[in-house]
Every structure is written in structure tokens, then in C-alpha cells.
Design a protein around this nucleic acid. Sequence first.
DNA 1: TGAAATGTTGGGGCG
DNA 2: ACGCCCCAACATTTC
Length: 478
Amino acid sequence: MGVALVWFRDDLRLDDHPALRAALERGLVPVPVYIHAPDEEGAWAPGAASDAWRRRSLEALAAALERRGSRLLMLHGPSLGTLQAVAALTGAEAVLWNRRYEPHIEARDTRIKRQLRQDGLHAESFNGSLLFEPWEVETRQGDPYRVFTPFWKNALAHWRPRPLWDAPARLPSPDLAGAPEGRHLDAIVPPPRPAWDTGFWQAWAPGEAGARARLQHVVEHGLHGYAAARDRMAEDGTSRLSPHLHFGEVSVQRVAAAVAATGEAVPAADRQRLLAELGWREFAYHVLHHYPHVADQDLDPRMADFRWARPLRATLEAWEQGRTGVPVIDAGMRQLWQTGWMHNRVRMVVASWLTKHLRIHWRHGARWFWDTLVDADLANNTQGWQWAAGTGADAAPYFRVFNPVSQAQKFDPQGEYIARWLPELAPLPAPARFAPWQHPELLRRYAPRYPRAPQVDLAAGRAAALEAFAALRAGRAG
DNA sequence: TGAAATGTTGGGGCG
DNA sequence: ACGCCCCAACATTTC
């Protein structure tokens, strides 16, 4: 029987896996391969939190393959050379994989595909992670979209859910006698030392089983009322599927199908809202594909002359470590540090603070998120930061400045979120937790170590941001 | 997927 | 009954 290498990357599942499916449908024995090649990730090599997750997800994938009679070959080295070597040693006739859509990875994979074909192998890639190919959706004029709503309207109108493919109960066992000895997981992604990630795994279950369990939970309990619940900071109202989707532990096609299948059981607005969140993910990949510079530069060239503040180390560190003196921001930054994740609404609030009140360029925030988020994803992270900073596609206008106090009052009315992640403020009565600088006597008594005042006065920071924006416009006009 | 300033409206107190 | 004022509630505009 012929052999096909199935090259796993950010698709760490067996269910609804187009490349694995293709191997089996061609009657080939799949040889699952994972190659660690961080040098090829360029400036955006996975961060520490991402690697901590990846390690667990790979462990789960390897176990799932073994339970089915197969085995994951984990290797370290240049992707092309490693694939060539393994193909030669196993006698593979095909190399199959699901596409990644980061521009520099797309370019690398195109070179790899060309070379493998020159070597006489059947090399083929599939869409395993998006509902729509980034180049598939276009305006009537044939241009890429830069505004979400028409993008999503057009995309949904053309959505034809494809049949899902269930992971087989058994897989053929590859003959790895001639193959290189696989590396131990520790050699691929070493465990964090010291084990700073222990707090993560009370909140998360990396791997395909955890992803499917979460999807089931969302569909059964999280969809009814989702549109409003997703904004409430203290609740488990968001889907929390982002890291599972990033690592491809669940197929986005399966997520969309499961949501759509709830039908009348769930209000249409809630269903559409969750689908729209998947839509933002699609939009982020669409924009990154067509404007590959956005990961590092403003999409909107008019922002090039904007007067960003010099990013002072101390200011940035206070933000990173949750010592800004604004409770909802500090709570969010500590949730991020302790669990590798932050509630979506809080992400918007902390991003607005950094880019508007502090006027620090969004790339500094994007970097910190990249290193600390378990769901760090180049397209989504870029889209989120450029949206918040007002520099990106369909971004919040620059003058849209979040007030972190009113945001907390609105979306954490009992101050529970603040108390949970900033326990030093828990002794304060809830109404005093939103702006403790207005209650100096309570601060002194109950939270003597918490900053006496925000790192920037709220009104002054807002005014300075608006003033800088006005100066930009004036400069352009004159 | 804002916030704050400004404008409008209408009920009620009061002379 | 009427005009006047206040002000909350809501709507619109501006940044």
C-alpha cells in the first residue's frame, strides 16, 4: 500500500481534517508528521503561552493517533528538508497538509509544494481552518473588502456548508522502520520552567477532546442569550473557543454547523451573533491575506504621521503587569497573565487605554498579547489591535475612546470581575471598585498597596488623544 | 463593538 | 388657566 505524509501544523485534530481524509480516500497509509521549525515563523514565532498550549495539544494528538493504531512523528528541522527525508525513508508518494494563511507561511509553503512536486511527489494542500478562502470573497469590483458588514453579508450569502467528516475509529499503522527516530515532545516544545502555566489548566483543556467538549457546552448552554452575555465580564458568556480554533483542535466548519443546527431552539440574534464572531475571524484572515503588511504596520496610511507617545518602559510595564491604577484594566491584565486569556470586552478596554489614553502604538500591545495569550493568532491579534487603535480595517474611529470606568459599571455592575482578578480591591464595597481614587480613605484602609491614582487622568488622557488626532487631521489638511 | 456635549421635549411645581 | 422655569429623559451631534 502507498504512503502519504500528513503534515500537521495548526490543525491538531483528527476530526474533519481534509488532509487526513484525502490520504485515506486515496487508499494511502497516512504517516502523521509534526515538524518544529521556529526559525521559519519569522518575526511572529509563537509566544510562550502559545507554546505551553501547543505542547499539551500535541500530546493529546499523539495519544489520539496511538489509540487508533497510528503514530505521530515529531521532528525538528527545516520543514522542506525534513519532509523530503521522511518521504524518502518511508517511500511516501504524497505529502498532504491543511493550509496556513499567515502571509510568510503561505509563501514558504508555496515553495515547499513546488519543490516536492519537482521531486516527483504528489503535494497538495487543503482548507482546514476557514469557512471561506481569503481570496474567495470579493466586492462586485473584484476588490478585497475593508468593511466587515458587507464582507460578511456577501460571504454568508455564498456559504454552502460542506459535509463534515468524522475521525475514523482506526487508522492504518504506518511502517516507520526506515523513518528517522522521532523527537520526544520535550525536545520539540520544552515544558515551561518554572511551571508558570499551572494556573492555565484550571481554565483550559487543550486538545481535540477539550475543544469538542467546549463546543458542546456552548451549543447546549452558551448560545441562548449569547449576544448579551458575551459582554459581561464576570460571566462565562463568551464561547472560549478561540485557542481551540487557533490550534485547529476543532473544525470551524463543525462549529458553524453546530450553531446553525440549533435552529429555533435559540433566538436568531444569538445564533447570528456567534456566527458573526466567526465572521470577524474570517475577515481578519481576508484582510491579512490581501494586506500582508498589517501585522506590523497601520493599514490606514493616513495614520503614518500620527503623534504616538514614546513608549516609556515604566509605563508599558505598569500596563503589562496590571498596575495602571484603573481596576478593570489591571484585572484584565492579571487575568491574561494568570490564565493566558482575557475576556473580549476587557481586551477592547485595555487596548483603548494603551493606544488612546497612553497613546502608545498598538504594536507594543500586540506584542505583549502575542506572548501571553494562549489564543495568540496573527490575523485576529492584528485585526483586534488595529481595530482598537483606529488604524485598521473597519476600525473604531480614532475618537472612539473607551471610558474604563463606565465600561466596568456597564459590563461588570457588581464589580465581581474586578474583585476576582484584583483580590486586593475585593474588600472595597462594589461601587467603590470602579474608580477607587475617588475613595482615598477606603483605598488607604483596605488596599494600601494599590495605586492611589490612574497612571493617566481619564479626562486628560482622553483629551490628549483627541487633540493628537485633531493635529493629524490639521496636518493633512495643511 | 463610545463618550460627552448639546439639543429637544414634556411633565410638574409654582406664582 | 396660564406662563414660566426646572430638569429628567431621550435624541442628536460632535469629537
